[in-house]
Amino acid sequence: MFQKLALSEMAALGATTLPLLVVQHPLGGERPDGVSRRAAQAVEQLGSLLGAP
C-alpha cells in the first residue's frame, strides 16, 4: 500500500522512470529472521535494479 504513495511522489517529482525497490509491508513487528529475509530480498532487488539498463 505504501508503494502507491511512492509512485505518486515519483510522478509528482517527474521521476517516473526511476527504479523502485519494494520491501514487503509490514516491517515493524517482524522477528529478526523475518527482517533478515526482507533484507536479503531487498539486496537481491537492488542487484537487479543496478544491473538494469
Binding site: 500500500m1 505504501f2 502507491k4 504513495l5 511522489e9
Partner: peptide, 10 residues
C-alpha cells in the same frame, strides 16, 4: 498537498 486518507495520508 495531496494528503488523501489511504492514498498519500497513510
Amino acid at each position: 498537498g495531496g494528503g488523501w486518507p489511504g492514498r498519500h495520508d497513510m
